[in-house]
Amino acid sequence: MKQFQYIRPITQQSVLAAIAQPGTKIIAGGSNLVDLMKHGVMTPDKLVDINKLPLRNVSTVKNGVHIGSLALNSQVAEDKQVVAKFPLLSQALNAGASAQLRNMATVGGNMMQRTRCPYFYDVALPCNKRNPGSGCGALEGFNRMHAIFGMSEQCIAVHPSDMAVAMAALDATVIIAGKKGERRLPFVDFHRLPGNTPQLDNNLAKDELIVAVEIPENNYAAHSHYLKIRDRASYAFALVSVAAALDIDNGTIRSARLAMGGVAHKPWRLTAAEKALVGKPANAASFEQAAQVAMQGAKAFKDNAFKLKLAPAAIIEALTHAAGLA
């Protein structure tokens, strides 16, 4: 590991001043960053530890819940308000990583984690995300875990988070602090598609800090489900995951929220499929139709063609569970 400096400011202002300098990197739980530093994938000169900032609370705000960016994944997953009002988020969090990691990882860090694409992780292999212009190793390589939506010739990696999939489905908003004060960004616009700049995972500027995520009240608590399909029962990244939430009135779907993980460079919100569900009976036929809509435009590579079949099956399965029909 390259030697680096380490500071732990106690005010947000000093954090913002520190991260404006080149070569700096924020560290919170460190559960991904430290790994990347050990592999030489990320080589910051200075780490800015933000754990002293008062951003750890989960609190009720007008029309929703406010989750500090330093709230631990395990803390949010077990938070009474979250469990009661946003069980989808709790389930997604508990589907991620291991208990030990959830005890270290923060909400902001979860959003900022990098792809687990093996070509990104191995500095001896080509990767446009790590080393722009070096080529995409996965494009014609081992791409079983890779994207079927929104990829580019430059990068077919997926975002690994489960939490983010639920937050995208639940219309969350990211609160970001910068030199000029705070700004609010819809969660679905936080992460980005690779395009020609796959080195950029998201729309957070280098000198900005995630301070919180807010989720608005909704009517989905009674009918939501997070389904994660993976190679083993726990501690594995998703082959495909689905966050499904339904507002059902007398057997008819009043509104729906649907997002997928493991299929794109960002949490993949399925708005067309959501629309297709509105006004439909909560039954298998509606779910199948929504899955069909959801899969429009999907494209597979050498090793991940199974996702074209697994993803719609998972959508139907998740909706069936959400509707209480399983």
Binding site: R116, P118, Y119, A233, S234, F237
Partner: peptide, 18 residues
């Protein structure tokens, strides 16, 4: 490349308790 692409315990799966 002749190189392993899952040479860690995240990529090389063994059973977990679950």
């Amino acid at each position: 490349f002749g190189r392993y692409v899952n040479a860690d315990l995240a990529g090389y799966h063994v059973p977990v308790h679950a």
